[in-house]
């Protein structure tokens, strides 16, 4: 999908239909999907500005100069972004974080990256709880962020959180060494995928690939 030029717009319509199909088959609540896809907005804002800046072919549209190159680039960002975000939503809503990590491990993502993701997953709650407690402790002593002047306090709070997390990392490492850690975490996966899993996994990418090739050959 990433490699398809935006001018093959029929391919993009098909990609979009495919991902919508996946969302419908997975019976994801559409409202939730919509809410989660709002994360894309900053990128869209950026993309919307692009046609107004650039060089090359241009035309006047309601008194604004629109550049063709910028327009295409913006369309590409919006189209690829939307389909990418929808794909990510479909993946995260249908698979547990553990399954995704297992999958990455099996896809031979370097172990160190899988480990970092595993630890992040485990400690994100611990760190956010800690952040929340620090916030409550600030409020309890009458602090209220009012403006730029208070950034210094928030900054030192962030620094304290960083140091605490760093020290926790050291303690976790000690605990790991104490239980005989020598550099390799146990593999997460136990069960290997069966045929149905494999077919399901290749269905979406192969459909997309076939259609995109067809589109290019026909035109």
């Amino acid at each position: 999908m990433v490699a398809t030029p935006i001018t093959y717009w029929i391919s993009y319509l098909f990609f979009f239909a495919l991902i919508l199909g996946v969302i419908l088959i997975a019976k994801l609540p559409l409202l939730t999907v919509f809410k989660r896809s709002l994360i894309e907005i900053p990128f869209i804002l950026f993309a919307v500005l692009m046609p107004f800046f650039g060089t090359g072919k241009s035309s006047i549209f309601f008194g604004f100069t629109i550049y063709e190159e910028g327009l295409l680039a913006a369309a590409a960002i919006i189209a690829k972004g939307t389909i990418g975000v929808l794909g990510a939503i479909a993946l995260s809503a249908t698979s547990t974080a553990k399954d995704i990590l297992q999958g990455l491990e099996r896809l031979k993502l370097p172990a160190i990256m899988v480990n970092i993701a595993t630890f992040s997953l485990r400690y994100i709650n611990v760190v956010s709880d800690e952040m929340e407690r620090m916030k409550v402790a600030r409020i309890a002593r009458g602090f209220q962020a009012r403006g730029v002047r208070d950034w210094k306090i928030l900054g030192s709070a962030a620094a304290a959180l960083f140091i605490r997390s760093y020290e926790r990392g050291e303690r976790v490492h000690l605990a790991m060494l104490s239980r005989g850690f020598t550099g390799a975490l146990p593999k997460i996966s136990n069960d290997s995928p069966n045929r149905q899993d494999l077919l399901g996994a290749v269905a979406l990418p192969s459909l997309a690939l076939i259609f995109s090739l067809l589109d290019r050959m026909v035109i």
């Binding site: 974080a97 630890f119 400690y123 926790r168 303690r171 976790v172 605990a175 104490s178």
Partner: peptide, 18 residues
């Protein structure tokens, strides 16, 4: 290290797997 089992003070330091 397999003969000495240390239980540290903060269980969040000790429990790091998913």
């Amino acid at each position: 290290r397999s003969r000495v089992g240390i239980v540290f003070q903060d269980p969040d330091d000790q429990l790091f797997m998913p």
